[in-house]
Amino acid sequence: MKHRTFFWFFLPTGLAMFLFIALPIVSVVTQSVFAPHEAVLKTVENCTPLVGCTTETTIDQEATREIREAQPLGRFVGLDIYLDRGHLAIAELGEAWDTAETWGDFWDRLFNLPLYRALAFTLTFTFIVTPMLIVVGLMIALAVNSLHRHLKGLMIFFSLLPMIVTPLIGSLILFWMVDSRGIIGSALVGLAGDPNFSLKASTGLTWVMLIVYGIWHSAPFAFVVFYAGLQTLPKDQIEAAQIDGATRWQQIKYVVVPHLMPLVTFVALIQLMDNFRVFEPVVGFNASAHATSLSWIIFNDLGGETRQLSAASATSVLTIIGVAILLSPVLVRTWRDFKGK
């Protein structure tokens, strides 16, 4: 295809991505180094005869508006927003490092800082859910693959539901069930033998709840991919293993899993990206008191009456950097493959 023809074919989609993905990234980076203008203050001295003079500080509305209109981005603050308490919190971190007696004390203080708290949950979620869903997905795929033909279709249909359903809606459905008055919640109260038992009350249990939701939501994806991979498994390899006297477990370990390995890499890559952006479950499970994620912080800063664009932008940039680090092994490998060609 000629360059010219390619250009015209690619123009609409390229333009859409440039205007609404590439430019916003630039805009986010720019906003993250500008803070909103502070109000201009003026001091007025009021002198009343006999009483004396008082000075009063008020906001100079006109001057404030003028400066905001002249420089709508705000004032340039460099990396200040990145280093403040809401983000990397360098000062607080240094202080905690200097004064903390033990490691436990240091971690406690670290988790009081919003960004590190969110980062801790996001990373825990990503790196527990991703391997777990691969294992669960593989188990479901192996089990369903050994079923009767008619049952397979039915199982695939119902297995797709947790994945297809809107994440917010899926987490609400589970949240209502684990509510202390819901069906699972009251069962747990019965098991715990404590009428006040609630999954929502403790940080640890909230994390477990969100992680279980994450596996429930994403395991079907792994299942479907692995199931498709199992259909292409060469029969003669399994038969050869059987003739060699391999047990079922050995067949799975030495024949099936190596055959599925490229798919495991694929699922792990996709799920790392998707789990790192965990957000809807935090809203759906109303869990922000115990578990926050990077995406949730951005959402929280942007919502509400005061849209804190600068704060949200700085968190966005840090999140993008996080994604880039997660993605870098893949990119390096793709680049090597490309160079090798």
Partner: peptide, 30 residues
């Protein structure tokens, strides 16, 4: 198209796919 830039366009698309959409929203609002 067999040219080299198609590879880079696809890689760019992959990076864009990996970014959480919420990180772009701050850039849209203003």
């Amino acid at each position: 198209s067999g040219y080299r830039y198609t590879f880079w366009l696809l890689i760019t698309a992959l990076i864009f796919r990996a970014m959480p959409p919420i990180t772009l929203v701050a850039g849209y609002l203003l």
